[in-house]
């Protein structure tokens, strides 16, 4: 099984880099995963990552990108609830990339 090393700890991930165990998650892990993608996490990134973690806690799934965009718009306003903004933050796809940093599985329906 693939692993990543963060702060001296070995963490299990799947073949695409998503955490095997959601309970392993920490901010350090998110930062390390982002660094691998040459992405420095800003406050705006954290807003989305934290939103996704809350969404998962409530509904037990990672939302599809359309659902994420709509929900972000509801919570953080229309200037953030649009795909242009979210793709600028997460160029690999807001649902896929942000979910990975948030320690969630890949959204249902993405392959």
């Amino acid at each position: 099984m693939p692993t990543i090393e963060v702060a001296g700890k070995t963490i299990e991930v799947d073949e695409e880099g998503y955490l095997q165990n959601r309970t392993d998650w920490s901010e350090e892990i998110a930062t390390a995963m982002a660094k691998e993608d040459d992405c420095d996490l800003t406050q705006n990134h954290w807003e989305v990552i934290n939103f996704l973690r809350e969404y998962y806690d409530e509904y037990q799934i990672a939302p599809a990108v359309r659902v994420l965009t709509k929900a972000i718009g509801k919570k953080l306003g229309p200037d953030k609830g649009n795909s242009k903004y979210l793709y600028e933050l997460f160029p690999y796809g807001p649902a896929k990339q942000a979910c990975k940093y948030a320690g969630l599985p890949k959204p249902t329906g993405c392959v």
């Binding site: 990108v65 359309r66 965009t69 796809g93 807001p94 649902a95 896929k96 329906g109 993405c110 392959v111």
Partner: peptide
């Protein structure tokens, strides 16, 4: 399915 496809959907 890519994020883009999901987004366009329809």
């Amino acid at each position: 399915m890519t994020d883009e496809m999901m987004e366009e959907g329809g």
